[in-house]
Amino acid sequence: MKLWIAFWNILLKDMRTYYLKPPNVSWGIIFPLAWTGMFFIRSDSGIESILTLLPGMVALSILFGTTSMLAVTVTFEKKNRSFERLLLAPIPFELLMLAKTSGAILFGVANGFVPVIMAAFLVDLSGIGWGSFVLTVFLIAVVSTFLGLFIAVAVSEVFEAQTFSNFFRFPMIFLCGLFFPIEKLPLFLKPLSYALPLTYGVDVLHGTVHGGHTMPFPLDFVILAAFCVGLFAMCLRNIRRRWIA
């Protein structure tokens, strides 16, 4: 009960002070909107191409939403020392980091549904397998949040976190099959694609939206989940090593 109060209030504070601020909320809407528009104009295709673009849009919105937030919530609080206040509280370290990241995860999930809601006005989405879709959106949000955390821990300045995360994010747009199938990538880049967690999430999204997946869903889920656990464990280890010296 006591731990739950702490967990809930950490999450609530982050929501209030960071995620529900107008600039962030509008960023979550404008960003997917801009990308969708850009792709429509470029591809000259009709309304029906929305379904093939949607998985990439969803993944992109989640990826950018979560990773940029972590850089602020964690790097900034580390720098102004308020993070120490959390480390001093009698909360198990794992739980503390879950509380600190769950705001970003929820923010990512919400961001992921912005393109879905926009698409719903234009095309029929009744063919989507929603169970797998929602689960995947959640797993992508978790995995990109932990990726953001990993980056935030590696740096000490907020601006470094932003730059460093772009270093990861932009290549992932092309490497993870968001808009261009992985098969069309040069051979030497393919191993890199399969080393990135987003590839597996995007695969499921394509599968559930328009049936264009390359791997069995269970395999995708298992690999995504493994990435979540692995990245989280790595983050915890790095934070302990770097911040509790």
């Binding site: 009960m1 006591k2 109060i5 702490a6 950490i10 206040r85 959390l86």
Partner: peptide, 10 residues
């Protein structure tokens, strides 16, 4: 209030 919540106070 936030600091108090970290210690599980209602």
């Amino acid at each position: 209030c936030f600091c108090a919540a970290l210690y599980g106070m209602k």
